[in-house]
Simulated scan of single mutants.
Amino acid sequence: MNIHSILYIPQPKANAPIRLVCFPYAGGGASLFFPWLNLMPEKVEVAIIQLPGRGTRFSESPYESMDDIVECIYRALKELPSKELIFFGHSMGARIAYEITLRIYHRKEQLPVHFIASGSPAPCVRSKKPPCHNLPTEEFIKHLGTLNGTPKEVLSDPQLMELLLPALRADFKIAEGYLNTTRITIPTTITLFSGRLDDINTEELEPWFLLFQYNRDIVWFEGGHFFINENHSELISALKKEIMNCNSLDLI
């Protein structure tokens, strides 16, 4: 496990007291969060999870289990200089972030001061969709097109898709098999982000609030599951508001 390449900090800020750790959705890479870098408050350093099989780790084999992903990210976080942590995860990224938060909690270490779960049903909610990771290539690519998370020019490039498919299938296999019914209340704060047109309903979101001691709200955005890409400015405004509202942090 390469713990040094899994966590990418494009613009290190040694004096920033806060580290915003961003976890992408299945198949997503660090570049998803590059537009955020110059939009965050000066006191916030952005760290981005870069899983193998994409971006600068394109040639590496993807992880095949949630445990491998979580252990590698956990160890990488421990090696960084200490800062207050805020976790933001979208879709599968939210579940990875939750598993890391659980690991931190069980090992009695410093928890993130805020957790933002975006575009994700609660960990205890079993997926209602049939698995797609093992579909034949043509059907799998067609399915990816219906999700609107992969650019059409990428989906229509057979050579590029041949290179991307192993990481995409591995991510979807992990996401589709994920379920955690643990009922531990983590003593930190959570906010939920969700798209109004996403097929994740309120009943699937609300169990998140049982897993954290301090709950804010569900922040709704126009768009579907990938509102994170569709409503960039609104999302950034909401994210900055959540950061500013962290009671233990003085960002003003």
Rank of each mutant, 00 (worst) to 15 (best):
L239F: 03
T191K: 05
W36Y: 11
F226N: 11
W208H: 10
M92D: 10
I48K: 09
Y74W: 01
S31D: 04
I200N: 06
N229K: 15
I116A: 07
K241L: 14
S233K: 15
L160Y: 07
H232C: 02
A26M: 11
R169D: 05
Y63A: 06
T191F: 01
M92F: 10
I100Y: 11
L85F: 09
P12R: 13
H133I: 03
E206D: 06
F227P: 13
G223R: 05
P187Y: 10
R19A: 02
F33V: 04
F172C: 01
I218F: 01
I6D: 05
I48H: 08
P17Y: 10
E206G: 00
G53S: 08
E162H: 14
E45Q: 15
P24Q: 08
Y8V: 14
S118Y: 03
V70Y: 03
P24Y: 07
T191I: 07
E206N: 12
P187E: 09
S233E: 15
L179A: 08
R57T: 09
E71Y: 01
G27R: 09
F193E: 02
T188K: 02
G27L: 09
L197F: 02
T191L: 08
G223Q: 09
P35W: 10
L211Y: 03
A94K: 01
E234T: 02
E222L: 06
F172Q: 04
Q50I: 09
A97H: 10
E206T: 15
Q11E: 15
F221A: 06
S82W: 04
N38V: 00
R95K: 14
E138G: 01
L192V: 13
I96S: 10
N148Y: 08
T182D: 12
E138N: 12
R95M: 07
E64A: 11
H114S: 09
D217L: 00
E138S: 14
H90S: 07
S194N: 15
A76E: 08
A122R: 02
R103S: 14
N180K: 09
L205A: 03
F23T: 08
E139D: 15
P131D: 08
I243M: 15
W220N: 04
T146L: 15
N245A: 14
C246Y: 00
G89T: 06
L179T: 07
V44D: 11
I49K: 05
T185H: 00
T202D: 14
I236F: 02
L251C: 13
N201F: 01
E204A: 15
I116E: 04
R95N: 11
Y63D: 07
I186D: 13
Y214R: 13
R57M: 14
V154G: 04
H225Q: 06
P10D: 12
I9Y: 03
E64N: 14
G27N: 10
L205M: 10
I86Y: 01
L168A: 03
E204D: 14
S120L: 05
V46E: 05
R126P: 00
L39N: 11
H225T: 09
E79P: 00
A16M: 02
V154H: 02
D199R: 09
Y178G: 02
N201V: 07
G149C: 05
S31V: 14
K128H: 07
V154D: 05
L192C: 06
V44L: 13
K129E: 14
G223V: 03
F115I: 00
L192G: 00
L135N: 04
R95Q: 14
H90F: 13
S91L: 01
G119Y: 05
I49N: 04
Y98P: 06
F33H: 10
M161L: 13
P81K: 11
L111R: 04
